[in-house]
């Protein structure tokens, strides 16, 4: 058990290191242009260029540059944005994090509940028109660009049908902290939650349905039926419980990706000042240090979430618990 745990920690560290190297290479060693110019931003003065070159060690060999970069990101945390009035990057990200957290958590709750309901219902009624309709809905869900869906949602709730009883409560784009006014926080986020959840509902209901349908062929499901259990009990206790293993592992990864900035497009469309929108603003200014920092942090999130998922796996699957 302990050795397995240590091995897992070791693996995590290797992957983290790999990611940092990958991100570093993407930003500093992609053939094309001088990284100094990229960091310094548009129309930088020669003095700024010189300062950047020295600060990041672009006149030194690559490993040194890498070390400098990592120090700036994780130890001194003084990565500075040149394009954006010299603001420090890390505090900005920390400030934006609660917004993203609010958005992603709410959305995850919705997609969890709806996708489990849809996937289970479709599997239970396999082959019926209910099943076909749910499959189609799921497909439509994964076929819509989220930023476009956001625009359409805005159009409906803020303009076309804003005066009807259904949408009159919808506030304009923006964010209200939970600590300030919970109700306003909720109102501001309901529509973004749903829009962000749509694609994941599609993905997860499809995965769950496929998994449950495949499980129905398993011997143990036949045993459960031979025991005289009710179909609902078989589906939930034997089917869903077994499927939960796959579901949770995927869920953890997607959740982490969203927290790490994957919700960028949703945040942009709804004007939510989260990590994603920070990245977006950095994009429009070609503010490289900020983008690099967000990518690095999000990748870190994903790797850590991976480790958490593995632990959940151990709790969910007795076979893994015994090291197989």
């Amino acid at each position: 058990m302990l050795s397995a745990f240590l091995r897992r920690v070791g693996q995590t560290l290797i992957v983290l290191f790999g990611i940092s190297v990958l991100v570093f290479l993407v930003f500093f060693a992609t053939p094309g242009a001088d990284p100094t110019a990229r960091i310094a931003g548009r129309n930088a003065s020669p003095q700024t260029m010189e300062k950047v070159r020295h600060e990041y060690g672009f006149d030194r060999p690559l490993p040194f540059q890498y070390a400098t970069m990592m120090k700036k990101l994780f130890i001194t945390r003084d990565l500075t944005s040149y394009a954006n009035r010299g603001e420090q990057v890390v505090p900005e990200i920390i400030q934006a994090a609660p917004v993203t957290l609010s958005l992603v958590c709410g959305s995850a709750v919705i997609w969890l509940i709806v996708s489990v309901a849809m996937g289970t219902l479709a599997a239970a009624m396999k082959g019926s028109w209910v099943d076909r309709t749910l499959i189609m809905l799921g497909l439509v869900g994964i076929s819509m660009p989220v930023f476009w869906l956001g625009q359409v949602a805005n159009l409906i709730s803020l303009s076309r049908y804003h005066d009807t009883w259904l949408f009159s409560w919808v506030p304009g784009p923006g964010y209200v902290p939970l600590t300030q006014n919970p109700l306003a926080w909720f109102k501001a986020l309901v529509i973004p939650w749903c829009v962000l959840a749509v694609m994941f509902i599609g993905i997860y209901s499809r995965i769950l349905r496929a998994d449950l349908v495949a499980l129905a062929q398993e011997d143990f499901m036949r045993t459960a039926r031979a025991k005289g259990l009710s179909p609902a009990r078989i589906l939930v206790f034997h089917g869903l419980r077994t499927s939960a293993i796959t579901y949770v592992s995927l869920f953890g990864l997607d959740f982490a990706q969203l927290l790490g900035g994957g919700a960028l497009l949703t945040e942009v469309v709804f004007g939510l000042p989260g990590v994603g929108r920070l990245t977006y603003q950095a994009l429009t200014n070609l503010d490289l240090p900020l983008i690099m920092a967000t990518v690095m942090y999000s990748a870190t999130f994903v790797v850590l979430a991976n480790a958490v998922v593995d632990i959940l796996y151990i709790l969910l699957d007795p076979r893994v618990r015994d090291g197989r």
């Binding site: 143990f220 045993t223 039926r225 031979a226 025991k227 005289g228 259990l229 293993i245 969910l316």
Partner: peptide, 30 residues
Amino acid sequence: IRGRDIAMIFQDPMTAFTPVYTVGWQIDEQ
């Protein structure tokens, strides 16, 4: 009737039990 009056034993005991529950739990369930 199934499970109470007529019970069935399947060929492969390896796959006859749901892997995520204890054997006792599954017998209790029936």
